[in-house]
Amino acid sequence: MKKLLAAFLTVAMAAVSLAGCGTEASDWDYIKNKGELVIGITYFEPMNYKGDDGELTGFETEFAQSVCEELGVKATFQKIDWDSKEVELNAKTIDCIWNGLTINDERKENMGISTPYMENKQVMVTKAENADKYTSAEAVKGATVVAEKKSAGEDVAKGNEFFKEANYVSVDSQAKALLEVKSGTADIAIIDYVMSIGTIANGTDYADLKVVEGQDFAKEQYGIAVRKSDTETLSKINEAIQAVADDGKLEEIADKYNLTDLLLVKAK
C-alpha cells in the first residue's frame, strides 16, 4: 500500500517537475546556502541507531558527519519511512539517503548514486540449533523462507537455485523476517549481513538465532543516493568520501563497528 502510494507520488512529482523547470541556483548551491545536508535515515544497528545515551550513533552516522565536515555543511539526520525515500528525496524534504542503500540498476536509473563504499551480502539466519543443517539445497527443501519484500534477500529467495525447493513468504521488513524465524512460523530468514551483525548479537531478543556459516548470496554494494539532477552535489560527496578515506578516518570508524572487512573505499 505504502509503496503504491510512493509510486503514485513519484509519478505525480515527475509530471510536475517536467512542467516546472526553470533557471535556479545550482543543486550544490541549494545545499550550501541552507548550510545543511539533510540525510534520510532509518534506525538500524550498526548503521544508524540510538546509542545507550540516546544519541544517534552508528557507522553511517559517523561516516556522514565526517563527510559533511569535509563539505563544510552541517549533517542533519532526518528519520524517514523507508518506503517513501524516493518521494522524500524528490520533495526535497531530505537531500540524500545514507542508510546502507543497496546499489542496483533501478536505483541508478532514478537517483544519483555515489561511489560504492561498502560491500554487503545476503545471509541465512535460522534458529541456532538449525544453523548446521541448512547447508545444501537438499536441506532447505520444503523449508519456509522469509525475506523483506522487494529486498535483495527476496531476489535471492526467489531466484537462487539453492532455494528452488523451498517455500518463500515475503514480509514487510527485515526485522519482521527475523521475528518469523524466532516465533517458528518460518525456518530461514534471508537478510543483509550488515543487519545481522547488529540484530542477532548477544543480549538481544534474537540471541538464539544464528547466521548459517559459509553460505553467502548476492554480494552487493552500498552507496549514497541523491536526487538524479544533483550531479554537482554527487561529485562533491564522492570527493569528500575519498578525502575521509585518505586521512584514515573512514577505516577508524569502520573498525569501531567491526565493518572493516567490508569497506570498499581505501586510502590512496
Binding site: 532509518t42 528519520k79 524517514i80 519511512d81 517513501s84 524466532k182 540484530t199 538481544t204
Partner: peptide, 21 residues
C-alpha cells in the same frame, strides 16, 4: 509514522530493528 513522525509505534519498531521484539 508514514511521514516519519517519531510516534510510539515507530519507536517500538526501531527497537525491533535493534533486536528487541
Amino acid at each position: 509514522s508514514v511521514i516519519a513522525i517519531p510516534e510510539i509505534l515507530m519507536n517500538a519498531k526501531d527497537f525491533s530493528m535493534e533486536g528487541l521484539i
